[in-house]
């Protein structure tokens, strides 16, 4: 699976304002509403579900990256977005480091395979330190979009 298969381009944010875990998740979910990927009426329920998942264990997987996510019946295909915090946010990450790079995913409950393949693509690309660094220093959403496109065209992701 490629980034372009699930990242809502209009929802990409290169400078999140929030400085808390809850705030970043809310800001990203709102950006998906603004991009038309999720309905405004589902915002609260989706944010709540993502926070509930975080309570089970942080999705801050190290290297300054977090993958907050949830299943939600309101979506019929996997939707996601990318955001960067230049200051970094305390996400109770597994390695204790602040998180600068966020991939938020909302997937239909009956499609666990798609969710796994999105995680696979994200983790495969993030093993490339240069890619991580370039994303974190992106000046605008277009920079991020181009980096994702480049990764898609180089990747062997299935």
């Amino acid at each position: 699976m490629k980034f372009s298969d699930f990242v809502a381009t209009d929802a990409i944010r290169s400078h999140v304002d929030a400085h808390t875990k809850d705030g970043v998740i809310r800001e990203m979910a709102q950006s998906l509403v603004d991009a038309g990927s999720i309905a405004a009426g589902d915002l609260e329920s989706i944010v709540k579900a993502i926070m509930k998942r975080e309570d089970l264990g942080s999705t801050g997987i190290g290297r300054g990256v977090a993958v907050p996510h949830t299943k939600h019946p309101s979506v019929n295909r996997l939707v996601g977005t990318v955001a960067v915090s230049h200051d970094g946010v305390d996400f109770e990450s597994l390695d204790g480091e602040p998180v600068q790079l966020f991939f938020l995913l909302v997937s239909p409950p009956d499609r666990p395979g798609d969710h796994l393949r999105a995680l696979e693509n994200i983790s495969r690309q993030l093993r490339d330190e240069a890619f991580c660094r370039q994303l974190k220093s992106a000046k605008g959403p277009m920079d991020i979009q181009h980096l994702l496109e480049e990764a898609d065209s180089h990747g062997v992701a299935s």
Binding site: P112, L116, L119, R124
Partner: peptide
């Protein structure tokens, strides 16, 4: 490595 493990995308 959690990143490595996730690249397996191992389904049920």
């Amino acid at each position: 490595s959690i990143l490595d493990v996730l690249t397996l995308a191992a389904e049920a």
